[in-house]
Design a protein around this nucleic acid. Structure first.
Lengths: 244, 244
DNA sequence: GACGGGCAAAATGTCAGACAATTAAATGTA
DNA sequence: TACATTTAATTGTCTGACATTTTGCCCGTC
């Protein structure tokens, strides 16, 4: 590995970057054990706390895992889909909440991506994913549901739709797009009428997938997008009025 | 903020999680200054190195930035699109390289997502993005290009295609899908004939977008997907033969 | 010879204190 | 007022130490 002059980046950051390079370049393969903290400190000519900070940076990105005890140490971590999902979701949520992303733009991105899944979902939907979608539709029709629970169920429905495509990479990519919308959707107060409309469109999507009609599913999805957009715009307009 | 019992998670991880909670819940807003390391250490009743490890975890995820000097400290960072792109790309690349994702699955996901962009790209493509695409096509037609440079240009072309949709959230979501394919594509040896075919399809896509025909662009994209798939399968077959 | 307990070693996790480097505000001076 | 200097606050790093956890090995017993 390379050495570190005293530049402005900070030693621990440089060390973390050097190790990350080793991993992404494949020179450190999955489950390989890194040198111990003391050895790394010696190699990079820094103190152990500095090395530890570097390792914690990598651990925060799930690139390594640490194990205590004899013959423990830091090991290159296999990035599982589950961990990748989590990172994807937190990053997407923060990106949307911190950058004044308009409801319209986020909505457009989400439905564009979901429409990309529908041809594959229509082809490969399983009884399992269809059952999940039906169950969520049923839950959404319950009268006593809070707005938050309704939104959570909405997310679950759309995740099932994405998972129907049977492509884990696609599911991973869309996890952020679907989940990150939830905080924005939570701002909407769903009336009985709007809930009915949404449930109806969800049912149309599920029906279309069941009979493997990608066109019908895409059409219903587009209607849902348009309807969600009007709901969101109403909220924004009401908020603007309250502000003035 | 909450306290930390001595459970198995590790103190620094618990502290990092507690602060992350504060940020995502909005109780710590963008550019807000966190308490100093000494104050945090006092508050959580741990030592300063432990607090520092926690802060480095957050810094690795670009959630905070630190500034030295008087009235410096740790500040909640606005997650920029650029930083989010970077995280998205590294996570996607590692996910693909570490999980034996087949070329077919990755390819399918990528082109499905890109097709989701074409209707918007056809609607909103600018002279700027079109010029970028043309420039990359021209570069790809140069004879002396290495395979790596050809792949890099291919990525640049597809990024321009995605950016044509004019939706930054969409661009962010697709950054991983497009960039993470590059290591897989780099394994392919591009003959003069395959390069010609790809350049031709790229030109057809650019032409279709220029005249705002989403259908033609999607058709060309699908052809490109099919062709890429055959190239990838040839490589896999050759590799299987070499192994046997 | 096999099994089990205890001990030592190795490694990470944490702590305490100190010093260096940096930066912005406060202060002093022309 | 404008500029240079000091000063205080804060992060970055180092040194050294102790605690905790886990593994492997030795050794005694059955």
């Amino acid at each position: 590995m390379k050495i570190d002059p005293d530049n402005k980046a900070g030693l621990s950051e440089q060390i973390a970057e050097a190790i990350r390079e080793e991993i992404v370049a494949g020179r450190l393969i999955v489950d390989a054990r890194l040198p111990s903290e003391a050895e790394l400190a010696d190699h990079f000519a820094v103190s152990r706390p500095t090395v530890r900070e570097a390792l914690k940076r990598l651990a925060a990105q799930a690139l390594i895992r640490t194990q205590r005890g004899a013959f423990g140490g830091a090991f290159v971590n296999r990035l599982s889909y589950t961990e990748a999902y989590g990172q994807q979701i937190t990053t997407s949520t923060l990106l949307l909440s911190m950058n004044e992303v308009s409801f319209d733009v986020a909505c457009e991105a989400r439905y564009a991506l979901e429409r990309a899944c529908t041809p594959l979902a229509a082809l490969r939907r399983t009884p399992d994913t269809l059952a999940t979608m039906r169950a969520e539709i049923h839950r959404q029709a319950q009268p006593g549901l809070t707005d938050e629970a309704f939104c959570a169920s909405d997310v679950a429905f759309h995740r099932a739709l994405v998972d129907s495509a049977g492509n884990p990479v696609l599911s991973y990519q869309l996890a952020g797009a679907v989940e990150a919308m939830q905080p924005l959707m939570n701002m909407i107060t769903f009336t009985a009428r709007s809930r009915g409309a949404i449930v109806g469109l969800h049912a149309r999507i599920a029906d279309a997938l069941e009979r493997q009609s990608a066109e019908a599913a895409e059409a219903a999805l587009s209607e849902l997008e348009a309807y969600t957009l009007t709901l969101g715009r109403d909220v924004m307009a009401a908020r603007a009025r309250a502000k003035a």
